[in-house]
């Protein structure tokens, strides 16, 4: 299989899943579209270095998560230069999302996840939204399963606490 064929296979098999992951990180349809294109451009450029030492899925996903985190870090710096907070901007983005058609509780969940520290956010998105097994996640994030489980547990507790507060405010 040559590079083009492999790349097309990756697009066909993983593009939708990667888009959903990107969507969870950036909380915007247009930004997720942009980020997904950046991810696949990175995949295309890095293809010669893929020697099959990792599974294709974990290799692709690792690039996706790293690109998403890089993008968020750049956004954080740009927000700081405007004396703004990325957390506040994310909340606004979630509130004004024209492609969101869910419940207030789901919106509160998105906000709670967006407010998590970097590592916990990664783990929560991959575990809760993408339903990725810990063993796979361990290869994607290059972290031990035990550490991932601990991160997920802490993240879940934080999210639950925020949701309880939000539920009280919304009288749910």
């Amino acid at each position: 299989m040559n590079a083009n064929e492999l790349f097309n296979k990756i697009v066909k098999e993983y593009s939708e899943r990667i888009w959903w992951t990107a969507r969870r990180f950036v909380n915007s349809h247009d930004d997720a579209d942009d980020l997904t294109q950046d991810i696949f451009l990175k995949i295309w450029t890095a293809l010669p270095s893929f020697r099959g030492e990792a599974q294709l899925f974990t290799w692709v996903y690792r690039i996706a998560v790293n690109e998403a985190m890089d993008r968020l870090r750049r956004e954080k710096v740009r927000a700081a230069l405007r004396f703004a907070s990325l957390d506040a901007e994310m909340e606004k983005r979630i509130d004004n999302d024209p492609w969101f058609d869910g419940t207030p509780a789901q919106r509160a969940l998105s906000k709670a996840v967006a407010a998590l520290p970097e590592k916990q956010r990664q783990v929560f998105i991959l575990r809760y939204y993408d339903e990725m097994p810990y063993e796979e996640m361990s290869q994607v994030l290059e972290t031990s399963v035990g550490s991932l489980k601990a991160s997920y547990h802490i993240a879940r507790e934080k999210v639950e606490a925020v949701l309880k507060e939000a539920a009280a405010e919304l009288n749910l």
């Binding site: 899943r17 992951t21 969870r24 058609d101 789901q106 919106r107 969940l109 939204y129 993408d130």
Partner: peptide, 9 residues
């Protein structure tokens, strides 16, 4: 497949 949780496309 990923949870959609209210997001449409």
């Amino acid at each position: 497949m990923a949870k959609r949780c209210g997001i449409q496309t």
